[in-house]
Computed example of a mutant assay.
Amino acid sequence: MGQHILVPVDGSPQSEAALEYVLDSYADAEVTILHVVDPASPFGYGDDENFDFESYQAEGKRRHERATELLEEYGELASERGVAFDTRLKTGKPAVEILEAADDEDVDLIVMGSRGRSGVGRVLFGSVAETVTRRATVPVTIFKQRDDEKR
Rank of each mutant, 00 (worst) to 15 (best):
Arg115Phe: 04
Thr91Ala: 11
Ile98Met: 07
Val9Glu: 00
Arg88Cys: 09
Glu54Ser: 13
Val140His: 02
Gly60Phe: 09
Arg134Glu: 11
Leu71Lys: 01
Arg63Cys: 10
Arg135Gln: 13
Arg122Pro: 08
Tyr74Lys: 13
Ile33Arg: 00
Asp86Trp: 03
His64Arg: 14
Ser55Trp: 12
Ile110Arg: 02
Ala102His: 02
Glu59Asp: 13
Asp104Glu: 15
Gly113Lys: 01
Asp103Arg: 12
Gly75Asp: 05
Pro139Asn: 04
Val37Asn: 04
Gly75Ser: 14
Leu124Pro: 07
Arg122Val: 09
Gly11Val: 00
Thr32Tyr: 02
Asp48Trp: 13
Gly2Arg: 10
Val120Phe: 14
Thr68Gly: 09
Asp47Ala: 11
Lys61Gln: 15
Glu30Asp: 15
Leu19His: 00
Ala67Thr: 07
Gly2Asn: 13
Arg135Tyr: 12
Lys90Asp: 11
Ile33Asn: 00
Arg146Trp: 09
Ala95Tyr: 15
Pro8Glu: 07
Arg151Met: 12
Val132Phe: 08
Leu89Glu: 10
Phe53Glu: 15
Ser114Leu: 08
His4Arg: 15
Phe143Leu: 12
Val36Thr: 05
Leu19Arg: 00
Val120Asp: 07
Met112Glu: 01
Leu34Met: 08
Pro94Thr: 04
Ala95Cys: 09
Arg151Phe: 13
Arg134Gln: 10
Met112Tyr: 01
Ser25Pro: 06
His4Gln: 09
Ile33Thr: 02
Met112Trp: 00
Tyr56Met: 11
Ser118Thr: 14
Val140Glu: 04
Asp52Phe: 05
Arg115Leu: 12
Met112Ile: 03
Ala78Gln: 05
Ile142Glu: 00
Gly121Cys: 04
Glu65Tyr: 06
Tyr56Cys: 02
His4Glu: 09
Leu99Phe: 12
Lys61Phe: 05
Thr87Val: 15
Asp28Val: 06
